[in-house]
Amino acid sequence: MKNILSILIITLCFSCHNQAQINPKQQAVINAEPVVVPMEDGKARAYFASGCFWCVEAIYESVKGVEEVISGYSGGFTENPTYEASNTGKTGHAEAVEVIYNPNEVSFSTLVDVYFGSQDPTQVNGQGPDRGSQYRSIIFYQNDEQKRIIQAKKEALAKKLDAKIAAEVYPFQKFWKAEDYHQNYERLHPNQGYIRNVSIPRLNRFKAKFPELLKDDQKH
């Protein structure tokens, strides 16, 4: 009886924590055809989820060839997600960023290197102190070539670390811009507790690892 009860409790906990990912609507997102975002004024767009978007926005904005980074939500099945709704873990979305970049200065392949090199690639359902499906790692592809690049780098990293890589690989569908107060949050609030203790150290670790990728004003 105890064994049966334990199994039921474990199953219930697993279901609660993974509700977004096992929802049939979520599976439809994973199985969808990717949406291609056309270039605009010579700029391309790429999409990544890697924990708190405050952290990820600051990391990508430090990279040469990146024009702008916008915080938002992607990867889920809910229309018009909000920060409050996303935090429940029930929208299917993860906190994500839209990276607007010049492909003549930085390649999609390099942006994927930045992605894997700026996180704990083995952490499931979160990044650092942020836990939950809304903080899970996802790389979005818009075409077969991007998918090939992502999968090749993911496989190589798994072999190098001899570990399973947590990042999910999704066809890009839609990016929902986050509320205005989330944009440029790290730059505007350098003394906020989370920024000082989590975001800035994460950014500095990335800078130390990839100095050759940094914009000139970020080399300090």
Score class of each variant (00 low, 15 high):
K2F: 14
N3Y: 10
N3M: 05
N3D: 14
I4C: 00
I9N: 02
C13P: 02
S15I: 15
S15E: 07
H17Y: 15
Q19G: 12
I22P: 01
P24A: 10
P24L: 10
Q26A: 11
Q27M: 11
A32L: 06
A32E: 05
E33F: 05
E33D: 12
P34L: 06
V35G: 11
V37K: 08
P38C: 09
M39W: 00
R45Q: 15
A46D: 05
A46R: 02
Y47G: 02
S50C: 07
F53G: 01
W54F: 14
A58S: 14
E67G: 10
E67H: 08
E68D: 14
V69K: 02
S74D: 06
G75P: 00
G76R: 01
F77R: 04
F77Y: 15
T78M: 08
N80A: 11
N80S: 13
E84C: 05
E84N: 12
A85V: 00
S86K: 00
N87V: 03
T88Q: 08
G89F: 02
K90P: 00
K90V: 00
K90T: 09
T91E: 03
H93R: 08
A94I: 03
A94M: 00
E95S: 04
A96N: 02
V97I: 15
E98S: 10
E98K: 11
V99D: 01
V99E: 06
I100S: 03
I100W: 02
Y101M: 02
N104G: 15
N104Y: 03
E105W: 03
E105C: 08
V106T: 15
S107E: 06
S107T: 15
S109V: 00
S109Q: 13
L111I: 08
L111V: 08
V114P: 00
G117D: 13
G117I: 00
G117E: 12
G117Q: 06
S118V: 08
S118T: 00
S118A: 15
P121H: 10
P121A: 07
T122V: 10
T122N: 07
Q123K: 11
V124D: 03
G126M: 07
P129W: 11
D130T: 09
D130E: 12
G132D: 09
Q134A: 10
Q134F: 07
S137P: 06
I138Y: 03
I139F: 02
F140Y: 15
N143R: 07
E145K: 13
R148Q: 10
I150R: 04
I150L: 04
I150K: 01
Q151S: 01
A152M: 08
E155N: 14
A158S: 15
K159S: 12
L161C: 10
E168S: 15
Y170H: 14
Y170M: 09
P171R: 08
K174H: 14
K177Y: 01
E179R: 08
E179F: 12
Y181M: 08
Y181Q: 13
N184V: 03
Y185E: 03
E186R: 07
R187K: 14
R187Y: 11
L188A: 15
N191Q: 13
Y194Q: 08
R196S: 13
S199T: 14
I200A: 08
I200E: 07
P201G: 11
N204L: 11
N204A: 05
F210N: 05
F210K: 12
E212F: 03
E212I: 02
L213C: 01
K215S: 11
D216H: 07
Q218D: 10
K219Y: 06
K219G: 04
